[in-house]
Amino acid sequence: MFKRLMMVALLVIAPLSAATAADQTNPYKLMDEAAQKTFDRLKNEQPQIRANPDYLRTIVDQELLPYVQVKYAGALVLGQYYKSATPAQREAYFAAFREYLKQAYGQALAMYHGQTYQIAPEQPLGDKTIVPIRVTIIDPNGRPPVRLDFQWRKNSQTGNWQAYDMIAEGVSMITTKQNEWGTLLRTKGIDGLTAQLKSISQQKITLEEKK
């Protein structure tokens, strides 16, 4: 169930391209415009997507990853294993993690069937560096609404905000991946996880038929 919630949630996290980005210092504006741009692209490019579902990787690479804190999220997933990894191991892992996100997020976007969304009203940021933004996803086919909290983090150097995690039903996506990959990290280390991520990233994206 959580895996499905995570995939549905990713439908609204794909941010804007650099040329049309919203105010990078306001995570609420980023979330709002990102959702609108993403849904528009999914709707307008269905012919290309249906002809070649792996085209979704391109959308992810162009529109999402430049505005997601990939390395920060990847380091959180590694936890204690990050500090013990060599620079070469980290570089290989982050490259594999990025390719994994292209496949995983692309597969999530393949679930698009006309969903709509509501974003919580903007709250004062103050001096906060981590801000959760509640998004409610509404399914046109009558499924119950899904309420999610996207975690946005302020870059201490640039002042810009980027998304790095999502919490559904009190469970963090980062925590879920830590639990899912924990045994592999304990037995085969970061190299074993890197190899698995490379394998997963090679899987073809498949479209979910409308139910």
Score class of each variant (00 low, 15 high):
residue 2 F to R: 01
residue 2 F to I: 09
residue 3 K to H: 00
residue 3 K to M: 02
residue 4 R to Q: 11
residue 5 L to G: 01
residue 5 L to M: 06
residue 5 L to P: 00
residue 6 M to V: 06
residue 6 M to T: 03
residue 8 V to L: 14
residue 8 V to C: 14
residue 8 V to I: 14
residue 8 V to H: 01
residue 9 A to E: 00
residue 9 A to Y: 14
residue 9 A to I: 13
residue 10 L to G: 01
residue 11 L to M: 06
residue 11 L to C: 06
residue 12 V to H: 05
residue 12 V to G: 03
residue 12 V to C: 11
residue 13 I to N: 02
residue 13 I to Q: 03
residue 13 I to D: 00
residue 14 A to Y: 08
residue 15 P to R: 10
residue 15 P to C: 11
residue 16 L to I: 10
residue 16 L to C: 07
residue 16 L to A: 11
residue 16 L to P: 04
residue 17 S to F: 14
residue 17 S to Y: 11
residue 18 A to V: 12
residue 18 A to C: 11
residue 18 A to Q: 13
residue 19 A to G: 11
residue 20 T to S: 08
residue 20 T to A: 10
residue 21 A to R: 09
residue 21 A to I: 04
residue 22 A to S: 11
residue 22 A to H: 10
residue 23 D to P: 14
residue 23 D to E: 12
residue 24 Q to T: 11
residue 25 T to I: 12
residue 28 Y to A: 08
residue 29 K to F: 13
residue 30 L to V: 06
residue 30 L to Y: 12
residue 30 L to H: 07
residue 31 M to A: 02
residue 32 D to G: 09
residue 33 E to W: 04
residue 33 E to H: 05
residue 33 E to Y: 04
residue 35 A to H: 03
residue 35 A to F: 06
residue 36 Q to R: 08
residue 36 Q to P: 15
residue 36 Q to D: 06
residue 37 K to R: 14
residue 37 K to Q: 08
residue 38 T to Y: 14
residue 38 T to P: 02
residue 39 F to H: 00
residue 39 F to I: 02
residue 39 F to N: 01
residue 40 D to N: 10
residue 41 R to D: 02
residue 41 R to H: 04
residue 42 L to V: 15
residue 44 N to H: 09
residue 45 E to A: 09
residue 45 E to I: 04
residue 45 E to T: 07
residue 46 Q to A: 06
residue 46 Q to R: 09
residue 46 Q to C: 07
residue 47 P to W: 11
residue 48 Q to D: 12
residue 48 Q to G: 12
residue 49 I to P: 02
residue 49 I to Y: 06
residue 52 N to Q: 11
residue 53 P to A: 12
residue 54 D to R: 06
residue 54 D to P: 05
residue 54 D to A: 09
residue 56 L to D: 03
residue 57 R to W: 15
residue 59 I to Y: 03
residue 61 D to V: 04
residue 61 D to F: 02
residue 62 Q to L: 06
residue 64 L to T: 05
residue 64 L to F: 13
residue 64 L to D: 00
residue 66 P to A: 07
residue 66 P to D: 14
residue 66 P to R: 03
residue 66 P to T: 06
residue 66 P to M: 05
residue 68 V to I: 11
residue 68 V to S: 11
residue 69 Q to F: 01
residue 71 K to A: 03
residue 71 K to R: 09
residue 72 Y to D: 01
residue 72 Y to K: 00
residue 73 A to V: 03
residue 74 G to K: 00
residue 74 G to W: 00
residue 74 G to M: 02
residue 75 A to T: 01
residue 75 A to N: 00
residue 76 L to Y: 04
residue 77 V to L: 05
residue 78 L to M: 07
residue 78 L to N: 05
residue 79 G to S: 04
residue 79 G to D: 02
residue 79 G to K: 01
residue 80 Q to W: 04
residue 82 Y to P: 00
residue 83 K to E: 03
residue 83 K to L: 05
residue 84 S to Q: 13
residue 84 S to L: 11
residue 84 S to E: 13
residue 85 A to S: 10
residue 85 A to N: 08
residue 86 T to H: 09
residue 87 P to Q: 13
residue 88 A to C: 10
residue 88 A to Q: 12
residue 89 Q to G: 06
residue 90 R to L: 05
residue 90 R to C: 04
residue 91 E to Y: 10
residue 92 A to V: 14
residue 93 Y to Q: 03
residue 93 Y to M: 04
residue 93 Y to K: 00
residue 94 F to M: 12
residue 95 A to G: 11
residue 97 F to M: 09
residue 98 R to M: 07
residue 100 Y to S: 09
residue 100 Y to F: 14
residue 100 Y to E: 15
residue 103 Q to C: 15
residue 104 A to Q: 14
residue 106 G to D: 02
residue 107 Q to L: 13
residue 107 Q to G: 12
residue 107 Q to H: 12
residue 110 A to V: 15
residue 110 A to D: 14
residue 111 M to K: 01
residue 111 M to W: 09
residue 111 M to I: 14
residue 111 M to A: 09
residue 111 M to H: 03
residue 111 M to G: 07
residue 114 G to K: 05
residue 115 Q to Y: 02
residue 115 Q to M: 02
residue 115 Q to C: 00
residue 116 T to V: 14
residue 117 Y to P: 03
residue 117 Y to T: 09
residue 118 Q to E: 13
residue 119 I to G: 09
residue 119 I to R: 11
residue 119 I to N: 09
residue 119 I to Q: 12
residue 120 A to R: 15
residue 121 P to K: 10
residue 121 P to V: 11
residue 122 E to F: 13
residue 123 Q to H: 10
residue 123 Q to I: 11
residue 124 P to Y: 06
residue 124 P to H: 09
residue 124 P to V: 11
residue 124 P to N: 08
residue 125 L to E: 12
residue 125 L to A: 08
residue 125 L to T: 13
residue 125 L to M: 14
residue 126 G to F: 08
residue 127 D to N: 08
residue 127 D to I: 04
residue 127 D to F: 03
residue 128 K to G: 09
residue 131 V to G: 04
residue 132 P to I: 12
residue 132 P to Q: 13
residue 134 R to T: 02
residue 134 R to D: 00
residue 135 V to T: 10
residue 135 V to M: 04
residue 136 T to I: 05
residue 137 I to E: 02
residue 138 I to D: 06
residue 138 I to H: 10
residue 139 D to Y: 12
residue 140 P to W: 12
residue 140 P to T: 13
residue 140 P to S: 12
residue 141 N to K: 07
residue 141 N to I: 07
residue 141 N to S: 09
residue 142 G to K: 14
residue 143 R to N: 03
residue 144 P to S: 08
residue 147 R to Q: 03
residue 147 R to F: 03
residue 148 L to M: 13
residue 150 F to Y: 14
residue 150 F to R: 00
residue 151 Q to S: 08
residue 152 W to H: 04
residue 152 W to T: 06
residue 152 W to E: 00
residue 156 S to Y: 03
residue 156 S to K: 03
residue 157 Q to S: 05
residue 158 T to V: 06
residue 160 N to E: 08
residue 160 N to P: 01
residue 161 W to I: 02
residue 161 W to G: 00
residue 161 W to K: 01
residue 162 Q to F: 03
residue 163 A to C: 11
residue 163 A to L: 15
residue 165 D to W: 00
residue 166 M to V: 07
residue 168 A to Q: 01
residue 168 A to D: 03
residue 168 A to L: 15
residue 169 E to V: 04
residue 170 G to T: 00
residue 170 G to E: 01
residue 172 S to E: 00
residue 172 S to Y: 01
residue 173 M to G: 00
residue 174 I to L: 15
residue 174 I to Y: 06
residue 175 T to N: 04
residue 176 T to C: 08
residue 176 T to F: 03
residue 176 T to P: 00
residue 177 K to R: 11
residue 178 Q to W: 00
residue 178 Q to K: 04
residue 179 N to Y: 10
residue 179 N to T: 12
residue 180 E to T: 05
residue 181 W to S: 15
residue 182 G to S: 13
residue 182 G to D: 02
residue 182 G to M: 14
residue 182 G to N: 14
residue 182 G to L: 12
residue 183 T to H: 13
residue 184 L to D: 13
residue 184 L to S: 10
residue 185 L to H: 09
residue 186 R to N: 02
residue 188 K to S: 10
residue 190 I to E: 08
residue 191 D to V: 06
residue 191 D to P: 05
residue 191 D to M: 06
residue 191 D to G: 08
residue 192 G to I: 12
residue 193 L to Q: 05
residue 194 T to N: 11
residue 194 T to I: 12
residue 194 T to K: 07
residue 194 T to S: 13
residue 195 A to L: 14
residue 195 A to G: 11
residue 196 Q to C: 15
residue 197 L to S: 10
residue 199 S to A: 12
residue 199 S to G: 13
residue 199 S to Y: 09
residue 200 I to K: 04
residue 200 I to L: 15
residue 201 S to K: 07
residue 202 Q to W: 10
residue 203 Q to L: 13
residue 204 K to P: 12
residue 205 I to W: 06
residue 207 L to D: 14
residue 207 L to C: 08
residue 209 E to F: 12
residue 210 K to M: 11
residue 210 K to S: 09
residue 210 K to Q: 14
residue 211 K to V: 07
